[in-house]
């Protein structure tokens, strides 16, 4: 492992594909795998101290969260608390304090676990991500970033630079619920994040899920179905059927596909009825 002086040096190292360098930030995921002998890799670029990748910037149209921002930084940020409460909830439910102090938003994204806690919130807030390499910066919708299980639109030599959350003046109802077996330090079995703008009818809605598909999933068909609808038990029942078709959960050591399906539907109902743990 080596510590580069600055971002440029880090990007140069990472650009040399033959050398085989990989980035390491807070280490909260990577060190577990490394210690368990599940990473053959030993060449790491220590990016933790790169100042270029730290900080939260508020602009009029968006909040930019740099990749090395920790969960603790996120959950203490007043504007994020006010405008993106589900991301704060997600950060507060990621590990516990010691993990929140080290784990980074960038790491949570590029570790690409379908069970990660912040991606559903980022998807529901329609986030964009910026990627940087020696070739420059590119931006894409976060919803297009995850391609398959542990597959991302991330080229060799590219680092996640920042996450952008578009700001809005709309009156939103925010809902985030992580279902793990225990209330803290859990790995989610189902994670549900919803944002809805509602007048008489549903004007705008975004729904995202964790742990029920190979990737953090945006439930677009369910959203499309619900937009313009006036809620009724019949509409909710239909939406539940649609979301059930969108997800593809599995049986594993943490839960069952059946449980994940049922709970996803129940959470959708709770979200739509606005009775549950809202922010």
């Amino acid at each position: 492992m080596i510590t580069p002086k600055n971002l440029d040096e880090a990007l140069t190292l990472l650009a040399d594909r033959a050398a085989g360098w990989k980035p390491c930030a807070g280490g909260t995921d990577l060190m577990v795998l490394f210690e368990a002998g599940k990473l053959n890799h030993t060449k790491f670029v220590n990016i933790a101290a790169l100042t270029e990748l730290h900080g939260i910037e508020e602009r009029s149209d968006a909040i930019e969260i740099k990749a090395l921002t920790t969960y603790t930084d996120i959950l203490k940020h007043a504007t994020i608390q006010r405008e993106f409460p589900s991301l704060v909830t997600a950060a507060a439910l990621t590990g516990a304090v010691a993990i929140q102090n080290r784990g980074t938003i960038g790491g949570n994204i590029v570790n690409a676990s379908p069970a990660a806690d912040s991606p559903p919130a980022l998807l529901a807030y329609d986030a964009q991500v910026e990627l940087i390499s020696v070739k420059g910066v590119r931006r894409l919708a976060y919803a297009d970033f995850h391609k398959g299980y542990k597959q991302m639109d991330l080229q060799p030599g590219e680092l996640l630079k920042s996450v952008l959350l578009p700001r809005t003046h709309a009156e939103l109802h925010h809902y985030y619920r992580k279902v793990g077996t225990r209330r803290a330090q859990a790995i989610s079995k189902v994670c549900f994040c919803g944002v809805v703008e509602r007048e008489d009818r549903i004007k705008n809605i975004r729904i995202a899920l964790g742990s029920v598909a190979p990737i953090p999933l945006r439930a677009r068909r369910t959203e499309t179905f619900l937009i313009g609808k006036q809620l009724s038990s019949k509409i909710i029942d239909e939406a539940k059927k649609i979301i059930d078709q969108e997800i593809s959960p599995i049986d594993d050591i943490r839960s069952t596909a059946k449980y994940r399906r049922r709970v996803t539907q129940n959470l959708l109902e709770e979200f739509l009825c606005g009775t549950g743990s809202t922010n």
């Binding site: 516990a96 793990g180 077996t181 225990r182 209330r183 803290a184 330090q185 859990a186 790995i187 050591i253 943490r254």
Partner: peptide, 27 residues
């Protein structure tokens, strides 16, 4: 309510504190 040993062919397959869930201070 929390602790379940998952067995496969006589072997515990969730032998990590991450996957064998004991109660925390909030539980």
């Amino acid at each position: 309510l929390y602790e379940k040993v998952e067995w496969k062919e006589g072997r515990m397959v969730n032998g990590q504190m991450t996957n064998y869930i004991m109660p925390t201070s909030v539980d």
